[in-house]
Design a protein around this nucleic acid. Structure first.
Lengths: 335, 335
DNA sequence: TTGAAAGCGTTACCAT
DNA sequence: ATGGTAACGCTTTCAA
């Protein structure tokens, strides 16, 4: 592969001149420009981004750490980051496959070695302390879907507790009195907080939810189906079901209808996340919108600010997001 | 950020020694290893991947070019590549946002500048000639979802024509006689070939499909809904509907049921792709499985072979994939 | 306007 | 086993 020296030699100029025309530097004669450009084309020259990164000390790269790509939720996250990357003429380096604290750490370290200017990190396993230290060492690091007091201005997160409350209020307003809930068995804060918010709001309204009407499952279609079967097996009555996420909610609806319950006339079902899926289900899923793409864009922009020379006052931006109720067809007034 | 020199100085050894312990090179005393490792931790040293790439002439990067991340189909593609990247301890560089030949070219060029060892490219807009020339210049470049004779062994593709035929055979075997079809208005080969295969197989069986029962739309839920409305508006009867992709098929089912048609008892609907969505729909969608993830893995592996020193004989591998019928609930025997 | 040369952070070869 | 140093491909300062 041709180097800048090859171009310089072939064009009969110095490497400095070639560099100048390539970077639209100042003071280059039109003649040199044309000459160099011609040779560049002839030799099929492509500048080596690694060499350039080394000398300029900037990689023009935004790193993203997510558990996996196929989950549409994380795909949206990556997409959000990608949009700001494109706008800034930067590129996306992806580090995925997170199942443990160790692999999360590894993913982050890879991005550090690449010297990404900004890093948008989705970490559920790493400890607060680890993340804080990391943030102190990496100027452009921003956390998404996680809140840590000490680095609050570098956390972009969703208020899951409030989400649970909004869910409860919606179902309450629909005149429901007997509730069930399907949560995730994954050991992260999100499901706990959602359930907690849901219960607390119920209690404020004088309602409650029986312990036996709370089920746990994998956050997938199948997990939702299985949890619903267990719920049904209990024989207990309920008219409203709040589910951890959309995939589980769709699995729940499926099982409910297979067992002769109509949604929403017999049972209202409310999901969480508002992924693409929810618009494709029948009945269309009522859910809470998780604006992950916008949040990802915000995170990336914060990272950019952080690494910028002129530090704009970014400390007062609001990084807390509240999910928004999206009323579709799976919830209705209880007669 | 600390460099290897800092570590060397602080550890009282040469940079060469530091490099050796970091790369587990031969002939280093246990004492030096421990010493260096200690300092590395103290200084929070992280090797600069750009510098390393420059001197070793390898970036340990696999590049992927796709139109966008949020489409689950392309997310699966990226996921496939990512899996082989992880296995090889390489990383994923993503270049997206393709709408025109120009942006596709740009995306590819970025990956070239980064000196990706292998590149898995999904291009629909670039000409055969351009792609062939590119392939000649970039050893590790592999095309996915596209077939070009001249570089056949570097193309991993799906036989869309055969897919259309399989669809026709399935519907025919189900005793259907009157057909409709929804295709994509996007100007790429895929929809054309699928339709062509479908029609040709129909004709071989003495059946046919009326011109007015072929509709076109955007390859989305809404596109499927609109196309179905137009189909219905024609007033013509049909008992089997073959749709360009799963999203459109789900939109079609939705519109069909809203208009009083039962799927599959009144009308059978067959999708294409077998994305996650198809398992979540009600009725569950019968469709043709597009093994994009495996194909992506194969593409990445071919790229790896191509750039390997010892050129394994890769020219005889089969890069053509045939979609597989997945019979679920949206198609049934016509009484 | 142009060129020479230093230097970015590594690795790898050659000495010792 | 260890150290010195050239080289990787580029940008940028300093002179001319």
């Amino acid at each position: 592969m041709a180097t800048i020296k090859d171009v310089a030699r072939s064009a009969g100029v110095s490497v400095a001149s070639v560099s100048r025309v390539l970077n639209k530097g100042p003071k280059v004669s039109q003649k040199t420009i044309e000459n160099v450009l011609k040779v560049v084309k002839e030799l099929n020259y492509s500048p080596n981004a690694n060499a350039r990164a080394l000398v300029t000390q900037k990689s023009t790269t935004i790193g993203v750490v997510i558990p996996e790509l196929v989950d549409p939720f994380f795909a949206s996250l990556a997409h959000g980051v990608e949009q700001v990357a494109r706008k800034k003429n930067m590129q996306l380096l992806l580090s995925t496959g997170l199942v443990s604290a160790a692999t999360e750490m590894q993913a982050i370290n890879l991005l550090i070695e690449r010297r990404c200017e900004v890093m948008v990190v989705h970490s559920k396993k790493l400890s607060d302390e680890t993340l804080i230290e990391l943030a102190n060492n990496v100027p452009g690091l921003v956390l998404i879907d996680r809140y840590i007091e000490a680095i609050a201005h570098r956390c972009v997160w969703l208020d899951n507790l409030e989400g649970g409350k909004i869910a409860a209020r919606h179902l309450l307003a629909l005149n429901h009195q007997s509730f069930a809930c399907i949560s995730s068995k994954h050991q992260i804060d999100d499901p706990l907080l959602r359930l907690q918010g849901f219960q607390s709001e119920l209690q404020s309204a004088g309602a409650d939810i029986e312990e036996s009407l709370i089920e746990y499952g994998e956050p997938t279609l199948q997990g939702g189906e299985m949890a619903t079967q267990k719920l049904l097996a209990s024989g207990k009555h309920f008219s409203a079901l709040f589910v951890y996420n959309d995939a589980m909610a769709i699995g729940a609806i499926s099982t409910l209808e297979d067992n002769g319950f109509k949604v929403p006339s017999d049972i209202s079902v409310l999901g969480f996340d508002d992924v693409l899926l929810s618009r494709y289900s029948r009945p269309k899923l009522s859910t809470l919108n998780y604006p992950i793409e916008e949040m990802a864009m915000q995170a990336a922009n914060i990272g950019l600010e952080l690494t910028a020379k002129r530090p704009t006052n970014t400390s007062d931006v609001n990084c807390k997001h509240i999910p928004r109720l999206v009323k579709r067809e799976s919830t209705s007034f209880k007669q």
